[in-house]
């Protein structure tokens, strides 16, 4: 009797555990199309969304790349915005491979439609495929309202991808990218400073270092530096001294 009860309890426990695992997998695989898309606040949140898209569409790796230059001057390390690799890995690719022979990057530079690239034999269409196990990758062109060109590379899927799946992945990538533009990229075109940013300019003007500002505002140094970078972009200034000078002239601080 005791054994039966224990067996049932164990059985139920496993069922509950499996249900939780399944619901977690389902939640992760749909993170990028749910409400979290509208809750994304920083680059980490967007990393999670793009990773969710990659995972849900059975790709093991991803990279959001900016296409501001010609293929000859393209650098994997500096032009990948969000990606699933270590920067030092991308730096190695820059040293070891001829970027002009990277098929998906060339596709993104010359085409406005998503493309599927498949590795056949030993020849890899892109050195980025070294990072993924599967032979299929997808290159999805993306554009901001200001006509800045980007591309999402999804890498490492085993087997092919149907036209319907490609359309769905491209649609979801475009939605995430639109939000990424609104939250992260469009800062370059904003000029108004938030209350927190004005507070930071004021503390900088008083001679405080990032570490001192972090302690005073109970933030991390990373967040303080991130705010500073945002202010520099918004005010189109080159350093902290320039930021303070422009803020005083604009009447943002006394």
């Amino acid at each position: 009797m005791l054994l039966t009860c224990t067996g049932n309890v164990v059985g139920w426990w496993w069922r509950i555990l499996l249900t939780e695992i399944v619901s977690e997998v389902e939640r992760n695989s749909t993170l990028h199309v749910g409400d979290e898309l509208h809750r994304a606040l920083n680059r980490m949140d967007f990393f999670r969304l793009f990773k969710s898209l990659a995972t849900a569409s059975k790709f093991s790796e991803f990279g959001l790349v900016e296409l501001s230059s010609e293929a000859e001057s393209f650098r994997y390390e500096s032009e990948m915005h969000l990606h699933s690799w270590a920067s030092m890995q991308l730096g190695e690719l820059d040293k070891r491979f001829d970027r002009t022979k990277d098929v998906p990057i060339s596709q993104l530079l010359t085409s406005a439609v998503p493309s599927v690239i498949t590795a056949v034999g030993d020849e890899l269409p892109s050195p980025l495929m070294l990072f993924g196990e599967g032979e299929t990758m997808v290159a999805i062109p993306l554009t901001t309202p200001m006509r800045r060109r980007y591309g999402l590379l999804l890498i490492g899927r085993s087997g092919g991808i149907s036209t319907e799946e490609l359309a769905q992945v491209s649609y979801e990538a475009a939605i995430i990218f639109q939000r990424y533009y609104e939250v992260i990229l469009s800062i370059d075109f904003q000029t108004n400073l938030s209350e927190r940013e004005i507070q930071l300019v004021l503390l900088t003007s008083e001679g405080n270092t990032s570490a001192e500002i972090a302690k005073k505002l109970k933030l991390s140094e990373h967040t303080v530096n991130s705010y500073t970078a945002t202010i520099l972009r918004k005010l189109k200034v080159v350093n902290r001294a320039h930021m303070v000078a422009v803020s005083i002239r604009a009447g943002l601080i006394n």
């Binding site: 980490m44 999670r48 790796e61 969000l82 699933s84 967040t223």
Partner: peptide, 17 residues
């Protein structure tokens, strides 16, 4: 500074963080 689900933490996420 950031948020992440426990089940989302893997080698890729840690590298990015």
């Amino acid at each position: 500074d950031f948020r992440i689900g426990k089940d989302e933490i893997d080698a890729q996420a840690i590298t990015f963080i």
